[in-house]
Write a protein that binds this DNA or RNA. Structure first.
Length: 427
RNA sequence: GCGGGCGUCGCCAAGUGGUUAAGGCAGCGGCUUGUGGCGCCGCUAUUCGGGGGUUCGAAUCCCCUCGCUCGCCCCA
């Protein structure tokens, strides 16, 4: 084996694997289009500052997972680790927020985080993100959760858990934080090391600790929930009520804190036990202050991201089935080969999967190939046919007895079309 | 960044110190130069992720390294 290899945490998606990706993406894009959500594409490469300010300096993503380098113009550049900051930047920069204060957007593409690869986790991974910009009603929270839930449902993914929480607004959070920091000061010695390190950097994340002992100690800590304003409380209750109306089951998880700093109020995650330790397939929440913080107009927003690698892991085997060849063109001989080429172009006017055999191999070989591909029908053109200006077309599955075989002149497009309509396009 | 497991052909694998590294699938060729699915026959790893060492001798033992994988952490 030579020593040119892909980088750690990156993968080649080969044709066989892409069948599943394409089938899954097709369903997803259909759902997005039906919900009137528009695509936005932003650069994969951004200035580093965007993520530091957008995501938050204290977060793990920014402090230790970014692919950052200095370019030839001595600018600090970063391969995007997530999509929301770029979308916010693009909207601000292009003046989109004054012309179109309300927007529903989606994006899909590669993201980069320098982490140890694991099941469902790559360094280059792919996310589908949806952002509702300018929407502040609880109904937009509900719609976006329902949208994520339904995309996963459309893909036939079962046994999902929706976890929700509210993080309150900035005031709620700073009130809580004061009290929480006091408590941390007294109890820090009983926390695990990771959590102790977070006290100064990102205290809220301590709530989300997986350490069993820390979890136990935290049971006596002040709760963010008790610091919520009347307004935040109402909002959260309304969210729960509406999810119940839609019959979307949820679990309240008061320790659910998103890893990116920009979230406010609603936070949610959709997880699946089938994913192993990387259980989260979808994560999202409200970020009412982000756009303003980044220098834009005061614009509330909510969004989510779905990890496509994890989605592919969860989607069933049904999505792995490729579309079969409809017509395989067996051909041999100088004139026959040129007629076959011409015919194959004509056939591409139909919604059919047509493969022209270019091997020049024996008829027997070409038949075997057609059979291996499970082609639904074959066309045969050899010297005899070429001379007469006609070709055979016939159904090729095992059950057919050859009655559907037809001899058609190269000029007779109508006869060809009729045969196709009767045999291939009716299913 | 820290732990555990693993690394033999494109894929799945046998082999655990001794002359030529099983087998299956796939691929290619033939039986059958113009008609498929079955069957039969043949071909396909000077080499066991890479490098070094131990040994008369290593895929098999030791060291280093790379990669994969599963956890921790973090996240989608």
């Amino acid at each position: 084996m030579n020593n040119l290899k892909n980088l750690r945490g990156t993968v080649d998606l080969l044709p066989d694997q892409l069948i599943k990706w394409q089938n899954v993406e097709k369903i997803v894009l259909e759902q997005l289009a039906r919900a009137s959500i528009n695509e936005i594409r932003t650069p994969i490469l951004e200035m580093t500052e965007l993520f530091i300010r957008g995501i938050g300096e204290g977060t793990d993503v920014v402090s230790k997972e970014m692919y950052t380098f200095i370019d030839r113009g001595e600018r600090s550049c970063t391969l995007r680790p997530e999509g929301t900051a770029s979308v916010a930047r693009a909207l601000i920069q292009n003046g989109m927020l004054s012309n179109h204060p309300l927007q529903k957007l989606w994006y899909m593409g590669p993201m980069f985080r320098y982490e140890r690869p694991q099941a469902g986790r790559q360094r280059q991974f792919h996310q589908l993100g949806v952002e509702f910009i300018g929407y502040d009603s609880v109904r937009s929270d509900v719609e976006i959760i329902a949208l994520a839930w339904d995309i996963l449902g459309k893909l036939g993914i079962k046994e999902l858990n929706l976890e929700i929480n509210t993080l309150g607004d900035l005031d709620d959070r700073s009130n809580f934080q004061k009290s929480f920091l006091k408590w941390l000061d007294i109890n820090k010695d009983s926390l695990d090391l990771d959590s102790q390190n977070r006290i100064n950097k990102n205290p809220l994340r301590i709530l989300d600790s997986k350490n069993i002992q820390t979890k136990k100690v935290l049971e006596n800590a002040p709760r963010l929930f008790n610091f919520l304003s009347e307004k935040s409380h109402k909002r959260y209750s309304a969210l729960k009520r509406q999810l119940e109306v839609l019959k979307i089951p949820y679990i309240e998880n008061f320790n659910l804190v998103r890893g990116l700093d920009y979230y406010t109020h609603t936070a949610f995650e959709i997880t699946s036990g089938a994913l192993g330790s990387q259980a989260t397939v979808c994560g999202g929440g409200r970020y009412d202050d982000l756009i303003k913080q980044m220098g834009g107009p005061n614009t509330p927003a909510i969004g989510f991201a779905i990890g496509l690698e994890r989605l592919i892991l969860l989607a069933g085997k049904d999505f792995e089935i490729p579309r079969n060849t409809d017509i395989y063109i067996i051909n041999q001989g100088l004139i026959a080969e040129s007629l076959a080429m011409d015919l194959s172009r004509k056939l591409r006017n139909y919604d059919l999967l047509v493969e022209l055999d270019l091997s020049g191999a024996s008829f027997s070989k070409q038949f075997k190939k057609a059979n291996k591909l499970k082609s639904r029908s074959i066309i045969v053109i050899g010297d005899d046919e070429a001379v007469k200006g006609e070709f055979f077309i016939r159904l090729f599955d095992q059950s057919s007895n050859g009655n559907e075989e037809e001899l058609i002149s190269f000029e007779n497009d109508i006869k060809l079309e009729n045969w196709i309509n009767n045999n291939l396009l009716v299913r």
